[in-house]
Design a protein around this nucleic acid. Structure first.
Lengths: 193, 193
DNA sequence: GCGTCAAACCTAGGGGCTCTAGGTTTCAAC
DNA sequence: GTTGAAACCTAGAGCCCCTAGGTTTGACGC
């Protein structure tokens, strides 16, 4: 019989594609085995178990995500960079919903140590914000504002939560404008109580 | 043998509590049966199947969510209302992660028809924004900005994605200030290209 | 060409989950 | 007390995860 010639990388790559099609939480060992035309048990020589498979998909996805963001912001600054970052973020989530969902899983320390992508993503985000001249605490708050909006909007969009007729891309662009405005005038919005 | 005296409502309520403890996607019929000290099969006289159980939990959760928001904004206006809305949103997600996850499922039309909570939530959000004097399109964009941020931040917080030492509540408050500022100056952030 | 050995793949089977079919028990109302 | 519906049960099929242990393939050295 012809064998598939699998390796851990090929299995994980196929799993990522399957996750994009079926959803990350519908990623199953048996479904993946079917797609690779192999018995379930065969996959366990490439991957420890389902949790391991999911974690590996997450590492792959986080790396691809960081690469996309890095490519998008390269050579840009200020609002240009913010818009490029935002567009790359959203398109990754929309084009690769399974991988995007995978990026949100909490990795165990062992897996986390195998990649620098999370740190790279954070560094890219902070680099983006440097143009707005915030101190460390304000910058952290701003990072959380951006991450919150980007993630929330993308997640809602992917899950079909926007029902109003208004063009979703237009709302996204408008929000990015609003966020740029907020960042530019960050100190003006501060409220003492 | 003593019987549990279950009904669909009791089953669904127990399922919601279980979801809050174990996570909405770890909600299982057999786990729920264990908790209710009943055989799996017994639950199928109260609920059609797992998908039906999940949908009913979603309807319950969306209703409770809308009630919380409504109670929070009652009698408030302007920034006060925004802050109350935001606090109610976040605390619901943090206190009831399983129910909150349930609110994000897409209901089939039949289930959707059994509740007015989604419409109520949208109405509350739009009422909140009325203070900022936006037209329909701008208001829709603003709703999406708010929903995106609220959902994304809460989701990231619940899933432990904020690792920086900065107090999470402080970041939330700061972001709410920033959003209020953005809404107040909505037209100023508009960029023509 | 032939043995060797690791990697790739397999069958068999246990345990958990969902769900159906069909039977039994409880309880309230007559 | 009988009756009928609601609540609950056992039994079992099908799918999924995973392990144990065995077989096949293919590259490499002799």
């Amino acid at each position: 019989m012809a064998r598939a010639g699998l390796s851990t990388e090929k299995v994980v790559a196929a799993a990522a594609d399957l996750a994009d099609e079926a959803g990350f939480d519908h990623l199953t060992v048996s479904g993946l085995a079917r797609r690779l035309d192999v018995r379930d048990a065969s996959l366990y020589s490439h991957v420890r178990n389902l949790a391991d498979l999911r974690a590996r998909v997450a590492v792959l996805a986080i790396g691809e995500f960081a690469d996309r963001i890095a490519a998008a912001v390269a050579g840009r600054a200020g609002k240009d960079a913010l818009a490029a970052f935002a567009a790359a973020y959203r398109s990754f989530a929309v084009d690769h919903p399974g991988r995007y969902a995978a990026t949100r899983t909490q990795l165990d320390p062992e897996m986390l140590a195998s990649t620098d992508a999370p740190a790279r993503t954070i560094a890219l985000t902070r680099a983006l914000l440097r143009a707005y001249g915030l101190d460390e605490i304000d910058e952290t708050d701003a990072v959380r504002l951006l991450r919150g909006f980007f993630h929330g909007f993308a997640d809602l969009e992917v899950n079909g939560a926007f029902l109003h007729g208004r063009d979703v891309s237009a709302s996204w662009d408008r929000a990015v404008d609003a966020l740029h405005f907020t960042l530019t005038n960050w100190h003006l919005s501060k409220e003492e109580q």
